[in-house]
Nucleic acid binder design. Structure first.
Length: 541
DNA sequence: GCCGTTTTCGGCCCGACTGTTTTCAGTCG
């Protein structure tokens, strides 16, 4: 948690420096440190205690000092001094697409805009039109951006909310000495949640000295109180969606859930097996005839044998191939697919033909050491604006498999974007479509695309669709993933890891696959490596 | 501000797209 605080303050400090017109390289040094901390695999607290922060690449004397200050005081001298000069509320403006340092600074200097509210007002008064470099389109885009941001600000990413909820759970367990359950949307594993809900047994509201109304991170908290005798019933009531509860009510003679001490007992009295929380949406679990099959076939953690889309230090990942292989083995997997960026992703150090051949040779060397594990030769090839791929067909055919992803030109019309992706998946070398909508949860809307057409094309060309497990993406959305499965498309859970810690994100993708009701056999990660390679080869690999 | 060095200074990633222009600055990945 303290690492998150440090990252947040360093990021803000970098932007304040930038707004103050400081040297680009000084700013970048802070941003580099942020990136290094994000990708850090070592135990941060340990580095702090053992006075080894300088071992982190990008952390020198100055930033070490800043980190120490943040840990002691929650901020840095640099930030505090800059805040005298630049209103920190300007930092909120960075969350609007199309606004960067230059334009934010310009708005501040000319119109004295210091926060989102003032910016919104200025747009409504058409005042931006008078500024150089701004036109009607920019003004409208900014207004739309503010509106979207307001919507985002009432939601929280799953891991952020879960972390805060678990802290509160521990706290409440200490106070009450009783049972506490994280319930609500969070227990159902929704990708974004509006609040934290906790169920507490053996205590009533009046007995709690300080009932927190929100978490330290500002997430609203709702507490539910129950007794041991009603625990199961109330756990179900506070976890399920309204539709799930309605479904259960329809099975009870009087429409009321039976009183039970455990969830299993409550479900049993309704004539149902235990339904995992992530399925309690009132969507897939409501067919009593299909439920047993759904539950029996549902993909689990134990079914996963590896993952496909990950980055090494050949592009923007931090780890060597050897390190990744060792890590994969330690996770009990039998393979990890390397899918570094292709050459046009210059910002990410994308691989050209020579790099890729060098990488393939090194993968062979690493693989020679193991009989129980394999690195797979993949590539995350950019889908260029016209739908062609950023790599020659000859080179693609040398790989085990190919993931195609969009990383540029997001603002096309739905028709153009759909054509672009359809063309890409029709390339005979493509085995997988990466993060199909480009959404960044609470930050960037999905690009306009006809997903039904994409799903049909993937079916036609035998292309699997990725469920990107990065908690900021979780793309393909689980609702669509179910649809893709129904239409006969295979799916793959991919952490898109850039560091060893990144492989932990696989769990979020698995959660999405389970919410989508995917049986293990349609999830490529559960396949045996021989069957996988054979499948990829059938497509001409 | 960091880093590496035939070491205490000089270099540090860039190309495409967009909305605004009339030749380009700013943002983004």
């Amino acid at each position: 948690m303290r690492r998150q605080l440090v990252i947040g303050v360093l990021k803000d400090t970098a932007r304040m420096l930038e707004l103050a017109g400081e040297s680009f390289y000084r700013v970048r040094a802070y941003n580099n440190a942020v990136m290094a901390l994000l990708k850090l695999d070592a135990d941060f607290e340990e580095l702090v205690q053992q006075d080894r922060l300088r071992e982190i690449p990008g952390v020198g004397a100055g930033i070490e000092q800043s980190i120490r200050e943040i840990l002691d005081t929650g901020t840095t001298t640099v930030y505090v001094e800059l805040a005298q000069e630049i209103p920190p509320t300007l930092l909120d403006l960075y969350n609007i697409p199309g606004l960067g340092t230059k334009r934010i600074r310009y708005l501040y200097d000319t119109l004295q805009i210091t926060n989102l509210g003032e910016l919104e007002y200025a747009c409504q008064e058409n005042r931006l039109l008078t500024l150089k470099g701004f036109g009607p389109k920019s003004q409208a885009d900014i207004l739309a951006g503010i509106k979207t941001l307001r919507r985002y600000q009432q939601s929280y990413l799953y891991p952020d909310a879960l972390g805060a909820a678990l802290q509160l759970k521990t706290l409440l367990e200490e106070i009450t000495g009783g049972k506490v359950l994280v319930s609500g949307e969070l227990r159902r594993g929704l990708e974004v949640v509006g609040k934290i809900e906790l169920l507490v047994a053996g205590i009533s509201q009046g007995d709690l000295p300080d009932v927190p109304e929100q978490s330290a991170a500002g997430i609203p908290v709702e507490l539910h109180f129950t007794s041991k005798e009603r625990w199961g019933t109330d756990a179900i009531l506070t976890t399920g969606s309204a539709a799930h509860i309605d479904f259960l009510g329809s099975l009870a003679p009087d429409g009321e859930l039976p009183i039970a001490a455990s969830e299993e007992e409550c479900y049993a009295q309704l004539g149902l097996e235990f339904i995992p929380p992530e399925l309690r949406e009132g969507i897939l679990e409501t067919s009593r005839t299909e439920l047993p099959q759904l539950l029996a076939g549902l993909v689990t953690d134990k079914d996963l044998k590896g993952v496909f889309h990950n980055h090494s230090n050949y592009s923007d990942g931090t780890n060597t191939l050897a390190e990744i292989a060792e890590h994969g083995r330690s996770l009990g997997w039998s393979f990890i697919g390397i899918g570094d960026h292709s050459q046009s992703a210059i910002y990410a150090g994308g691989l050209n033909a020579d790099d890729l051949r060098r990488q393939m040779a090194e993968i062979d060397e690493v693989n020679a050491k193991y009989s129980d594990f394999k690195l797979l030769k993949g590539l995350e090839v950019d889908i260029l604006s016209d739908g062609s791929l950023d790599c020659s067909d000859d080179l693609l055919s040398e790989l085990d498999y190919v993931i195609a992803s969009v990383h540029s030109a997001f603002k096309m019309s739905e028709r153009e974007m759909t054509q672009r992706v359809l063309k890409a998946v029709s390339n005979p070398h493509v085995n997988m479509l990466g993060h199909p909508t480009g959404r960044l949860l609470l930050a960037r809307e999905p690009y306009a695309i006809d997903l039904d057409a994409v799903i049909d094309a993937c079916r036609e060309h035998d292309v699997a669709i990725e469920i990107n497990a990065n908690p900021h993406r979780l793309d393909l959305d689980w609702r669509w993933a179910h649809r893709a499965y129904e239409r006969g498309v295979l799916l793959a859970i991919n952490p898109d890891a850039h560091s060893l810690a990144g492989y932990n994100d696989t769990r979020y993708g698995l959660n999405m696959a389970r919410k989508a009701g995917l049986p293990r056999e349609v999830v490529l990660n559960t396949w045996d490596i021989t069957a996988l390679l054979e499948k990829f080869r059938q497509k001409g690999k």
